[in-house]
Design a protein around this nucleic acid. Structure first.
Lengths: 119, 119
DNA sequence: CACTTCCTAAACCAGTTGGTTGACTACAAC
DNA sequence: GTTGTAGTCAACCAACTGGTTTAGGAAGTG
Protein backbone atom coordinates (compact mmCIF):
# COMPACT_ATOMS: atom_id res chain seq x y z
CA UNK A 1 0.00 0.00 0.00
CA UNK A 2 2.11 2.85 -1.25
CA UNK A 3 1.20 6.46 -0.61
CA UNK A 4 -1.73 7.93 -2.50
CA UNK A 5 0.37 10.25 -4.64
CA UNK A 6 2.33 7.27 -5.98
CA UNK A 7 -0.90 5.43 -6.67
CA UNK A 8 -2.40 8.39 -8.52
CA UNK A 9 0.67 8.82 -10.71
CA UNK A 10 0.84 5.08 -11.38
CA UNK A 11 -2.86 4.99 -12.22
CA UNK A 12 -2.51 7.75 -14.80
CA UNK A 13 0.62 6.20 -16.31
CA UNK A 14 -1.65 3.91 -18.33
CA UNK A 15 -3.22 5.40 -21.50
CA UNK A 16 -6.42 3.35 -21.15
CA UNK A 17 -6.92 4.55 -17.60
CA UNK A 18 -6.20 8.15 -18.61
CA UNK A 19 -8.81 7.79 -21.31
CA UNK A 20 -11.32 6.41 -18.84
CA UNK A 21 -10.71 9.37 -16.56
CA UNK A 22 -11.07 11.75 -19.49
CA UNK A 23 -14.43 10.29 -20.41
CA UNK A 24 -15.63 10.41 -16.82
CA UNK A 25 -15.15 14.17 -16.81
CA UNK A 26 -18.09 14.29 -19.22
CA UNK A 27 -20.44 11.93 -17.42
CA UNK A 28 -20.61 9.07 -14.96
CA UNK A 29 -20.67 5.71 -16.70
CA UNK A 30 -21.13 2.01 -16.10
CA UNK A 31 -18.36 -0.54 -16.53
CA UNK A 32 -19.93 -1.81 -19.73
CA UNK A 33 -20.15 1.67 -21.21
CA UNK A 34 -16.55 2.35 -20.28
CA UNK A 35 -15.32 -0.95 -21.71
CA UNK A 36 -17.15 -0.63 -25.02
CA UNK A 37 -14.59 1.49 -26.97
CA UNK A 38 -11.61 -0.67 -26.07
CA UNK A 39 -10.59 -3.96 -27.57
CA UNK A 40 -10.25 -5.71 -24.22
CA UNK A 41 -12.54 -7.72 -21.98
CA UNK A 42 -14.79 -6.04 -19.42
CA UNK A 43 -12.79 -7.88 -16.78
CA UNK A 44 -9.70 -5.97 -17.83
CA UNK A 45 -11.58 -2.68 -17.57
CA UNK A 46 -12.91 -3.76 -14.20
CA UNK A 47 -9.29 -4.18 -13.08
CA UNK A 48 -8.40 -0.73 -14.37
CA UNK A 49 -11.28 0.70 -12.38
CA UNK A 50 -10.03 -1.05 -9.27
CA UNK A 51 -6.68 0.66 -9.73
CA UNK A 52 -8.36 4.04 -10.22
CA UNK A 53 -10.57 3.45 -7.19
CA UNK A 54 -7.61 2.47 -4.99
CA UNK A 55 -5.93 5.72 -6.04
CA UNK A 56 -9.05 7.61 -5.01
CA UNK A 57 -9.66 8.86 -8.54
CA UNK A 58 -13.08 7.27 -8.91
CA UNK A 59 -15.85 5.94 -6.69
CA UNK A 60 -18.48 3.36 -7.47
CA UNK A 61 -22.05 3.23 -6.25
CA UNK A 62 -24.65 0.57 -6.77
CA UNK A 63 -27.76 0.89 -8.92
CA UNK A 64 -29.56 -2.37 -9.58
CA UNK A 65 -26.97 -4.68 -11.13
CA UNK A 66 -25.05 -1.72 -12.52
CA UNK A 67 -22.06 -0.08 -10.82
CA UNK A 68 -21.92 3.54 -12.01
CA UNK A 69 -18.42 4.98 -11.90
CA UNK A 70 -17.95 8.55 -10.74
CA UNK A 71 -14.85 10.70 -11.06
CA UNK A 72 -13.39 12.20 -7.88
CA UNK A 73 -11.78 15.23 -9.44
CA UNK A 74 -10.41 16.67 -6.18
CA UNK A 75 -7.59 14.12 -6.31
CA UNK A 76 -6.14 16.13 -9.18
CA UNK A 77 -5.19 18.73 -6.58
CA UNK A 78 -2.84 16.23 -4.97
CA UNK A 79 -0.80 16.08 -8.14
CA UNK A 80 -0.91 19.74 -9.04
CA UNK A 81 0.19 20.60 -5.52
CA UNK A 82 3.27 18.43 -5.87
CA UNK A 83 4.06 19.53 -9.40
CA UNK A 84 3.55 23.24 -8.77
CA UNK A 85 5.64 23.16 -5.63
CA UNK A 86 8.71 21.86 -7.38
CA UNK A 87 8.12 23.72 -10.58
CA UNK A 88 8.15 26.93 -8.55
CA UNK A 89 11.27 25.81 -6.70
CA UNK A 90 13.01 25.09 -10.00
CA UNK A 91 11.97 28.44 -11.43
CA UNK A 92 13.26 30.29 -8.38
CA UNK A 93 16.54 28.50 -8.69
CA UNK A 94 16.90 29.47 -12.33
CA UNK A 95 16.01 33.05 -11.47
CA UNK A 96 18.67 33.15 -8.74
CA UNK A 97 21.25 31.62 -11.03
CA UNK A 98 20.39 34.08 -13.75
CA UNK A 99 20.66 37.02 -11.37
CA UNK A 100 24.00 35.79 -10.13
CA UNK A 101 25.33 35.51 -13.63
CA UNK A 102 24.27 38.98 -14.75
CA UNK A 103 25.63 40.37 -11.48
CA UNK A 104 28.98 38.89 -12.39
CA UNK A 105 28.77 40.27 -15.93
CA UNK A 106 29.11 36.78 -17.31
CA UNK A 107 27.31 35.68 -20.45
CA UNK A 108 24.98 32.77 -19.91
CA UNK A 109 27.08 29.89 -21.17
CA UNK A 110 26.76 26.14 -20.87
CA UNK A 111 29.69 25.55 -18.52
CA UNK A 112 29.13 24.38 -14.99
CA UNK A 113 29.77 27.40 -12.74
CA UNK A 114 29.97 25.00 -9.83
CA UNK A 115 33.25 25.83 -8.11
CA UNK A 116 36.76 27.09 -8.66
CA UNK A 117 35.54 28.82 -11.76
CA UNK A 118 35.10 32.28 -10.24
CA UNK A 119 38.58 32.99 -8.91
CA UNK B 1 8.25 2.81 -25.93
CA UNK B 2 5.04 4.25 -24.64
CA UNK B 3 4.11 7.90 -25.12
CA UNK B 4 5.99 10.49 -23.12
CA UNK B 5 3.06 11.40 -20.88
CA UNK B 6 2.78 7.79 -19.73
CA UNK B 7 6.50 7.67 -19.11
CA UNK B 8 6.45 10.86 -17.08
CA UNK B 9 3.57 9.68 -14.91
CA UNK B 10 5.22 6.29 -14.44
CA UNK B 11 8.52 7.91 -13.55
CA UNK B 12 6.92 10.02 -10.84
CA UNK B 13 4.94 7.09 -9.46
CA UNK B 14 8.06 6.04 -7.53
CA UNK B 15 8.76 7.93 -4.27
CA UNK B 16 12.53 7.67 -4.67
CA UNK B 17 12.35 9.17 -8.14
CA UNK B 18 10.02 11.92 -6.97
CA UNK B 19 12.51 12.71 -4.23
CA UNK B 20 15.35 12.83 -6.75
CA UNK B 21 13.37 15.26 -8.88
CA UNK B 22 12.58 17.35 -5.81
CA UNK B 23 16.25 17.61 -4.92
CA UNK B 24 17.20 18.49 -8.47
CA UNK B 25 14.98 21.56 -8.30
CA UNK B 26 17.51 22.95 -5.83
CA UNK B 27 20.70 22.11 -7.70
CA UNK B 28 22.19 19.81 -10.31
CA UNK B 29 23.87 16.78 -8.73
CA UNK B 30 26.04 13.80 -9.54
CA UNK B 31 24.83 10.21 -9.30
CA UNK B 32 26.86 9.72 -6.13
CA UNK B 33 25.38 12.78 -4.48
CA UNK B 34 21.90 11.67 -5.44
CA UNK B 35 22.42 8.13 -4.19
CA UNK B 36 23.90 9.10 -0.85
CA UNK B 37 20.66 9.66 1.17
CA UNK B 38 19.08 6.38 0.10
CA UNK B 39 19.76 2.93 1.40
CA UNK B 40 20.23 1.42 -2.05
CA UNK B 41 23.17 0.85 -4.34
CA UNK B 42 24.33 3.50 -6.80
CA UNK B 43 23.41 1.06 -9.56
CA UNK B 44 19.81 1.24 -8.45
CA UNK B 45 19.91 5.05 -8.50
CA UNK B 46 21.54 4.91 -11.91
CA UNK B 47 18.57 2.87 -13.09
CA UNK B 48 16.15 5.40 -11.63
CA UNK B 49 17.98 8.14 -13.50
CA UNK B 50 17.68 6.17 -16.70
CA UNK B 51 13.92 6.06 -16.22
CA UNK B 52 13.80 9.80 -15.52
CA UNK B 53 15.96 10.48 -18.55
CA UNK B 54 13.80 8.33 -20.83
CA UNK B 55 10.81 10.33 -19.65
CA UNK B 56 12.65 13.53 -20.53
CA UNK B 57 12.61 14.73 -16.92
CA UNK B 58 16.40 14.94 -16.57
CA UNK B 59 19.44 15.24 -18.81
CA UNK B 60 23.02 14.21 -18.12
CA UNK B 61 26.19 15.87 -19.26
CA UNK B 62 29.77 14.78 -18.86
CA UNK B 63 32.37 16.42 -16.61
CA UNK B 64 35.55 14.40 -16.05
CA UNK B 65 34.36 11.05 -14.71
CA UNK B 66 31.25 12.65 -13.23
CA UNK B 67 27.82 12.71 -14.91
CA UNK B 68 25.99 15.75 -13.52
CA UNK B 69 22.21 15.35 -13.64
CA UNK B 70 20.07 18.31 -14.60
CA UNK B 71 16.31 18.70 -14.23
CA UNK B 72 14.29 19.49 -17.36
CA UNK B 73 11.44 21.28 -15.64
CA UNK B 74 9.53 22.07 -18.83
CA UNK B 75 8.26 18.50 -18.90
CA UNK B 76 6.05 19.39 -15.94
CA UNK B 77 3.94 21.36 -18.41
CA UNK B 78 3.05 18.15 -20.19
CA UNK B 79 1.36 16.87 -17.06
CA UNK B 80 -0.28 20.08 -15.96
CA UNK B 81 -1.70 20.52 -19.47
CA UNK B 82 -3.37 17.13 -19.26
CA UNK B 83 -4.56 17.53 -15.69
CA UNK B 84 -5.87 21.05 -16.11
CA UNK B 85 -7.72 20.17 -19.27
CA UNK B 86 -9.79 17.46 -17.64
CA UNK B 87 -10.10 19.22 -14.33
CA UNK B 88 -11.69 22.11 -16.18
CA UNK B 89 -13.95 19.76 -18.12
CA UNK B 90 -15.06 18.12 -14.88
CA UNK B 91 -15.73 21.47 -13.25
CA UNK B 92 -17.80 22.64 -16.19
CA UNK B 93 -19.83 19.50 -16.01
CA UNK B 94 -20.53 19.98 -12.30
CA UNK B 95 -21.47 23.58 -12.95
CA UNK B 96 -23.93 22.53 -15.66
CA UNK B 97 -25.41 19.84 -13.45
CA UNK B 98 -25.75 22.29 -10.60
CA UNK B 99 -27.47 24.86 -12.79
CA UNK B 100 -29.85 22.23 -14.08
CA UNK B 101 -30.77 21.16 -10.59
CA UNK B 102 -31.48 24.65 -9.27
CA UNK B 103 -33.46 25.36 -12.41
CA UNK B 104 -35.64 22.41 -11.54
CA UNK B 105 -35.95 23.57 -7.93
CA UNK B 106 -34.51 20.33 -6.69
CA UNK B 107 -32.29 20.12 -3.62
CA UNK B 108 -28.88 18.62 -4.30
CA UNK B 109 -29.34 15.17 -2.84
CA UNK B 110 -27.34 11.96 -3.05
CA UNK B 111 -29.84 9.83 -4.95
CA UNK B 112 -29.29 8.94 -8.54
CA UNK B 113 -31.88 11.08 -10.37
CA UNK B 114 -31.49 8.81 -13.35
CA UNK B 115 -34.92 7.30 -13.90
CA UNK B 116 -37.72 5.33 -12.33
CA UNK B 117 -36.98 6.71 -8.89
CA UNK B 118 -39.46 9.55 -8.90
CA UNK B 119 -42.75 7.63 -9.02
C1' DC C 1 -38.62 -20.93 -10.53
C1' DA C 2 -35.33 -20.38 -14.68
C1' DC C 3 -32.84 -17.03 -17.40
C1' DT C 4 -30.40 -13.07 -18.78
C1' DT C 5 -27.62 -8.96 -17.73
C1' DC C 6 -23.92 -6.61 -15.35
C1' DC C 7 -20.13 -7.11 -13.02
C1' DT C 8 -16.40 -9.26 -9.92
C1' DA C 9 -13.16 -13.09 -8.30
C1' DA C 10 -9.63 -16.41 -9.05
C1' DA C 11 -6.12 -18.66 -11.48
C1' DC C 12 -2.89 -18.30 -14.84
C1' DC C 13 0.65 -16.22 -18.05
C1' DA C 14 4.16 -13.25 -20.30
C1' DG C 15 6.43 -9.02 -19.72
C1' DT C 16 8.07 -5.29 -16.75
C1' DT C 17 10.07 -3.32 -12.51
C1' DG C 18 13.15 -2.35 -8.66
C1' DG C 19 16.43 -4.29 -6.45
C1' DT C 20 20.84 -7.10 -6.00
C1' DT C 21 25.93 -8.59 -7.15
C1' DG C 22 29.96 -8.78 -10.08
C1' DA C 23 32.51 -7.17 -13.89
C1' DC C 24 33.62 -3.41 -16.74
C1' DT C 25 34.77 1.57 -18.80
C1' DA C 26 36.45 6.28 -18.22
C1' DC C 27 39.11 9.52 -16.18
C1' DA C 28 42.53 11.41 -12.79
C1' DA C 29 46.39 11.10 -9.83
C1' DC C 30 50.16 9.04 -8.25
C1' DG D 1 52.37 2.07 -15.74
C1' DT D 2 49.23 1.16 -11.10
C1' DT D 3 45.76 2.69 -8.18
C1' DG D 4 41.51 5.03 -6.99
C1' DT D 5 37.13 7.17 -8.03
C1' DA D 6 32.59 7.76 -10.59
C1' DG D 7 29.52 5.49 -13.07
C1' DT D 8 27.41 1.92 -16.21
C1' DC D 9 26.36 -2.81 -18.04
C1' DA D 10 24.78 -7.58 -17.58
C1' DA D 11 22.75 -11.29 -15.35
C1' DC D 12 19.79 -12.65 -12.04
C1' DC D 13 15.66 -12.58 -8.87
C1' DA D 14 11.17 -11.76 -6.53
C1' DA D 15 7.25 -8.99 -7.00
C1' DC D 16 3.97 -6.57 -9.71
C1' DT D 17 1.15 -5.58 -14.11
C1' DG D 18 -2.10 -5.99 -17.76
C1' DG D 19 -4.07 -9.14 -20.09
C1' DT D 20 -6.59 -13.71 -20.60
C1' DT D 21 -10.17 -17.54 -19.40
C1' DT D 22 -13.27 -19.75 -16.40
C1' DA D 23 -16.41 -19.46 -12.86
C1' DG D 24 -19.72 -17.16 -9.96
C1' DG D 25 -22.57 -13.48 -7.42
C1' DA D 26 -26.35 -10.01 -7.62
C1' DA D 27 -30.26 -8.09 -9.32
C1' DG D 28 -33.96 -7.47 -12.65
C1' DT D 29 -37.42 -10.33 -16.22
C1' DG D 30 -40.02 -14.22 -18.17
Amino acid sequence: MPDQLSQVFAALADPTRRDIVARLTLADATVGELAEPYDVSTQAVSKHLKVLEAAGLVSRSREAQRRPVHLEAEVFDLMTAWIERYRRQAEERYARLDALLTEMNVETSTDTTRDGEAS
